[in-house]
Simulated assay, not measured.
Amino acid sequence: MRPALLCLLLCPVLLAATPRAEPYSFQGVERVVAVGDVHGDVGALRDVLKMAGLLDAQDRWVGGKTHLVQTGDIPDRGEQTREAYELLMRLEVEARKAGGRVHALLGNHEVMNLVGDLRYVSPGELASFADQSPTPDAPGTPKGARGHQAAHGPEGRYGRWLRTHAAVVRINDTLFVHGGIAPDLPVTTLEELNRWVLQDVTPGQPPGGASARNGPLWFRGYALDDEATWDAGLTKVLGQLGAKRMVMGHTTTQDGRIRMRFGGRVLFIDTGLSTGYGRHLAALELRGDKLTALYPEGRVPLLIPKARAPSVSVQSPEPAAAPRPASRGAKPR
C-alpha cells in the first residue's frame, strides 16, 4: 500500500488515540484543594475558592503552587454555567503562571451537554449561550438552543475546552474522579481511562467510558453499596493506579459534609455546593497524608478511622448509567 494512502487511513485513528500534552499524573505537589459539583452556581464556586485561600477579592488566583481539582459537573440546574466555565478557564492560566494547576475534570453532566442531552439545562442557562451561534433559534425552540449546541461542539468555545480535560488524574498518591473507578473496567491505566471516556465526545469513535454503566463518570458502588462488595476491588484499583485513596463527587452527601468510607481510602466531596442543593460550602485540602475538610466555620481534620466508616448518606441519585436523551419536560434525577 502506498504511504500516502496508508496515512489517509491511519491518521484519523492515530490522532484520536493520541493523549493530550497535559499529563494525567503529578508528583511532589505540596497542597491540593478539591471541590465538588458546581451545577451552574458560580457564586458558590467563587465563595468556596476564596474560603480555601485560592482567590482574592477580585477573583484572581492567589493559590500559588496549589493544585485545584474540580471533580466535574460544572453545568446544569443553575443558570451560571457559562460564568463558571469562564472563571475556571481564566484560573487555569493564572494558576499555571504561579506554578500551580487547575484540573476541571469531566463529569457526567459535562458529557451530557457535549452530546446534546439537555434534560437538566434550565431555560436561563440555555439562553446564556444564545450569542454563540450566528444563526437564530428556529421558531418554537427555546432561546439559546443553537448557541448552546455550537458552544459545546468540537470547535465551540466550551466544547473545545472541555474535550482537552481529563476524567481521572492522580496527584501524589490520590486519585480524583467524578463518579468512581470500578474494578471491572476494560482499561487499567490513567491514559487508557481518559481516552476511553473521550471516545464518547470524539466524532468517529466507538462508544466509550463516558456512557458506560460502571464508567468513571457514573459509578456509585463505593458510595451506595456495602463496603464488603467492593473492598477487594477498590484495593485492586488503587494498586493498579499507584494510589492510596480516591476522591470523588457525583453522589451528594445529605448533611453537607465531606464523608469517608473504606477506612479513609474513599472520600466524597459533593456536599451540595450549589444553591439548589443547599449551598453547603466545603473543600478538601490534602497536604501529604494530612487531610482536612474546609468549611465556612473552620478547618476540620479528617482522621482515618480504625474501624470501617458508616455508609455515606445521599440524596436521590441520578441513574446508574447514562440515560437516553429525553424531552425537555423530563426531569429525572
Rank of each mutant, 00 (worst) to 15 (best):
residue 216 P to L: 00
residue 70 Q to E: 15
residue 178 H to G: 02
residue 94 E to G: 05
residue 64 G to A: 09
residue 235 T to Q: 14
residue 301 P to A: 02
residue 164 T to I: 00
residue 195 R to T: 12
residue 173 D to E: 15
residue 260 M to Q: 15
residue 280 H to K: 12
residue 84 A to F: 00
residue 225 D to W: 13
residue 313 S to I: 10
residue 154 P to R: 03
residue 221 G to I: 07
residue 26 F to G: 02
residue 48 V to G: 01
residue 73 D to T: 05
residue 306 K to H: 13
residue 34 A to Q: 04
residue 141 T to W: 05
residue 81 T to C: 09
residue 310 P to R: 10
residue 317 P to C: 06
residue 30 E to Q: 14
residue 148 H to M: 15
residue 173 D to S: 14
residue 19 P to G: 04
residue 43 G to H: 09
residue 43 G to T: 09
residue 136 P to W: 09
residue 160 R to N: 11
residue 21 A to T: 10
residue 7 C to A: 15
residue 171 I to K: 00
residue 301 P to K: 01
residue 106 L to G: 02
residue 162 L to Q: 08
residue 300 V to D: 04
residue 315 Q to G: 15
residue 328 R to V: 05
residue 41 D to T: 01
residue 106 L to D: 01
residue 318 E to I: 12
residue 271 T to M: 02
residue 145 A to G: 07
residue 100 G to E: 00
residue 43 G to K: 05
residue 31 R to M: 04
residue 304 I to F: 12
residue 295 Y to F: 12
residue 168 V to T: 06
residue 114 L to E: 04
residue 125 E to Y: 00
residue 323 P to N: 11
residue 187 V to A: 02
residue 254 Q to W: 08
residue 140 G to L: 08
residue 244 K to N: 14
residue 235 T to Y: 07
residue 254 Q to M: 10
residue 80 Q to L: 08
residue 122 S to N: 09
residue 37 D to G: 05
residue 119 R to I: 11
residue 316 S to L: 14
residue 255 D to Q: 08
residue 260 M to S: 13
residue 190 L to Y: 09
residue 233 G to K: 03
residue 268 F to M: 11
residue 135 T to G: 06
residue 311 S to N: 13
residue 103 H to T: 08
residue 28 G to H: 01
residue 298 G to R: 03
residue 226 D to P: 06
residue 211 S to T: 14
residue 88 L to S: 03
residue 319 P to R: 13
residue 64 G to W: 06
residue 213 R to H: 11
residue 210 A to F: 09
residue 223 A to W: 03
residue 256 G to C: 07
residue 152 H to D: 03
residue 328 R to E: 12
residue 155 E to M: 12
residue 236 K to Q: 15
residue 250 H to V: 01
residue 286 L to H: 03
residue 328 R to M: 12
residue 144 G to W: 00
residue 70 Q to Y: 06
residue 18 T to R: 13
residue 59 D to A: 13
residue 330 A to E: 15
residue 314 V to E: 07
residue 257 R to P: 00
residue 60 R to F: 05
residue 294 L to H: 06
residue 192 E to S: 13
residue 120 Y to S: 14
residue 257 R to A: 08
residue 224 L to I: 13
residue 57 A to E: 14
residue 324 R to V: 10
residue 179 G to C: 02
residue 67 H to L: 14
residue 92 E to Q: 14
residue 304 I to K: 15
residue 264 G to I: 06
residue 65 K to D: 13
residue 25 S to Y: 02
residue 225 D to E: 15
residue 264 G to N: 07
residue 91 L to H: 11
residue 204 G to S: 10
residue 222 Y to H: 12
residue 191 E to R: 11
residue 139 P to C: 05
residue 105 L to M: 10
residue 87 L to W: 03
residue 89 M to D: 03
residue 36 G to F: 02
residue 97 K to S: 13
residue 312 V to Q: 08
residue 52 A to Q: 05
residue 97 K to R: 15
residue 12 P to V: 10
residue 105 L to V: 09
residue 73 D to W: 00
residue 292 T to N: 07
residue 296 P to C: 06
residue 235 T to N: 15
residue 288 G to K: 04
residue 309 A to S: 15
residue 144 G to T: 06
residue 210 A to Y: 02
residue 143 K to H: 10
residue 224 L to E: 13
residue 115 V to L: 14
residue 208 G to A: 09
residue 78 G to A: 02
residue 203 P to Q: 11
residue 178 H to D: 06
residue 313 S to E: 15
residue 86 E to P: 01
residue 224 L to S: 10
